[in-house]
């Protein structure tokens, strides 16, 4: 059987540096994720995990280094252009559109760039109506799959923390993603819901999506990830399967010392 890691990587990050003024939050990181693979990133607070993810998603412009998506250099692309190439993400502090209903949150995701187009909303209204109908159907499916149907007309700001995470993931699934970036996706989620989310992440990866996941809870990392990268002080200090990484001396020092 072909292991996911053997495929040509979907995203390649080469020697990436991200700095905030004098602080180098990410200091020369090289990683890659293949389609269908879940790469877990662990590391202490302030290790630079979120900054790495933001550079891949386009929220932060890296100081140096390169990010390739499907072999194409996207380092200089703004986030909305990367989104159009199949990158979706969740944020460490949930990013729901608070004064939109859950259903509208999904519609915005489903329409994407067409939703933001003034032309599509006015002159191209007919094509837009078709797209909206398709998106609404997909939204209805997702609402059923995530058991959120009763909340579909609820403002997202009225949801609980766990439900907001669900909405973020569902928004990603509205978009047929190629690469999914998850920043601490189980924080604030109750065990029962977290289990459902973990199953979903595996299911998403199984459908051929590359998943880059930052996670604190080691159980979740062990269960969901194919491979694990450990970061400390902006650098990768260990890489391999969960078991390999946990054996590593460097990791023990970073966590205990």
């Amino acid at each position: 059987m072909l292991a996911p890691g053997d495929l040509r990587p979907l995203v390649e990050v080469c020697d990436l540096v991200v700095s905030y003024g004098a602080v180098r939050a990410v200091d020369g990181v090289t990683i890659s994720v293949a389609p269908g693979e879940v790469l877990g990133i662990v590391g202490p607070n302030g290790a630079g995990k979120s900054s790495l993810l933001a550079a891949v998603g386009g929220q932060l412009r890296p100081t140096s280094g390169q990010i390739r998506l499907d072999g194409v250099d996207v380092t200089k692309l703004p986030p909305h252009r990367r989104a159009r190439r199949g990158v979706v993400r969740t944020f460490q502090d949930t990013s729901e559109f608070g004064r939109l209903t859950v259903f509208e949150n999904l519609l915005v995701a489903g329409l994407g760039m067409h939703g933001a187009s003034l032309y599509a909303a006015t002159v191209g209204a007919r094509a837009q109506a078709r797209r909206t109908a398709t998106a609404a159907e997909r939204a209805a499916e997702l609402l059923a799959r995530f058991e959120l149907e009763p909340m579909r007309d609820t403002y997202a700001m009225e949801l609980s923390g766990g439900q907001r995470r669900l909405v973020e993931v569902m928004r990603g699934l509205m978009r047929e993603p190629k690469l999914m970036l998850l920043d601490e996706p189980t924080v604030g989620v109750a065990p029962h819901l977290s289990e459902q989310l973990r199953r979903e992440y595996r299911r998403i990866a199984a459908s051929g999506v590359a998943v880059l996941m930052i996670e604190h809870v080691l159980e979740v990392v062990e269960e969901v990830s194919d491979r694990v990268v450990v970061m400390d002080n902006g650098s990768v200090i260990a890489e391999g399967t969960y078991d390999q990484v946990m054996q590593s001396q460097a990791v023990r020092e970073a966590y205990l010392g």
């Binding site: 905030y20 929220q59 932060l60 944020f91």
Partner: peptide, 8 residues
């Protein structure tokens, strides 16, 4: 803006 994420 430097944080790039939310402008919080």
């Amino acid at each position: 803006v430097t944080s790039g994420l939310a402008l919080k």
